[in-house]
Design a protein around this nucleic acid. Structure first.
Lengths: 182, 182
DNA sequence: GTATTATCGGGACAAGTGTCCCGGTTACTC
DNA sequence: GAGTAACCGGGACACTTGTCCCGATAATAC
């Protein structure tokens, strides 16, 4: 970490830009311009450009702050004794995080540089839940990611219902059919 | 319809632009420029601009050609004697249509001018399926639309699994709880 | 307090977008 | 087949976006 080498005002500005960007991306999507972010953060466009040479760098940095919490939660859940409960709990967290930062929802579950850590954990939780028979065995991570992304697009209402539907659908199983694959 | 007033070449060009736009929007999303669409259609940008004064007009026109089939199917299903089956069948069609035209998926279920007709039918099918107890009563159309949109983002694999998960989750019900609302 | 140097601000630039317009061409009418 | 008007092509324009640069400024070391 070379953060200590930054000057005090530079650290402040960097943090402020990151904060504003997170808020703006969450509420208005990734299409907001860098100029607008700089304006709202009260800095010049050059300042943003220096800390985050590319818009993609800015997006990645915002994603990193988001994924940190999710990664920590996933690791905690992975140590749980209830693989099914752990998976479904993380599913809810993913949806909530995605819905709270709508512009970044797709990137959250994707294989981007920042979200990779989340994906790895989500995959592991899924596999573990499937091994104990808590989640139907025919779904793969891409299926779950797509469905989660969809849930995050639910606007103007509570997320509980969509998450509930999703969990019920993933559960193993509506009607026991334990041995239709072996 | 004033289409008969168009000159022959104008009709041809209009159809060609529409065709190319549908294909391009489907495979590369709405962010493709009008210039690019004109180039691929082998016409000038002015030609596109005249038939569809605004890019939004072009998108709407493409959506209209898509929704026509869906509307017809929905009307046919609405006359069926199995509300549950009708709803789930239409759900599958919606997902397939959305996945085949990824750039327009969100607009398909939305309240845009062109997709309104689809939404009205989907709402009706949902309500009817809920009335006979085939679909859990706590979901609303916005929930379904969000989940369908998610399914359409599933890339590189078969859609059957996600649709299956979605249907199982929506079905009424994993464990009967008929009277928790009344 | 002064010198130094990292950092700032915002104007500038290139690339890309949607939209419009005009001279030329082609299809339809008689 | 000639006249007319609708239509075409693509260049032009205004605008936005991401990125870079440079003179001005303010923080840090001594």
């Amino acid at each position: 970490m070379a953060e200590r080498l930054l000057r005090a005002d530079a650290r402040r500005n960097r943090a402020r830009v990151l904060e504003v960007a997170a808020h703006v991306f969450a509420t208005e999507g990734l299409s907001v311009s860098v100029h607008e972010i700089a304006r709202r953060a009260g800095v010049g466009t050059g300042t943003v450009s220096r800390h985050f040479p590319t818009k993609d760098d800015l997006v990645t940095a915002v994603l990193l702050t988001l994924t940190a919490d999710l990664v920590a939660e996933a690791d905690a859940l992975a140590a749980t004794e209830d693989p099914g409960g752990a998976f479904f709990a993380f599913l809810g967290s993913l949806v909530r995080a995605g819905a709270a930062h709508r512009g970044l929802a797709r990137e959250l579950t994707g294989a981007g540089a920042a979200a990779g850590a989340v994906e790895v954990r989500a995959r592991a939780l899924l596999v573990r839940a499937q091994e104990v028979g808590a989640v139907r065995p025919d779904v793969c991570y891409a299926d779950v990611a797509a469905l989660v992304t969809g849930c995050t697009t639910r606007e103007g209402g509570p997320l509980e219902t969509v998450v509930g539907v999703l969990c019920d659908g993933l559960r193993h199983t509506t009607r026991p059919r334990e041995d239709n694959s072996a």
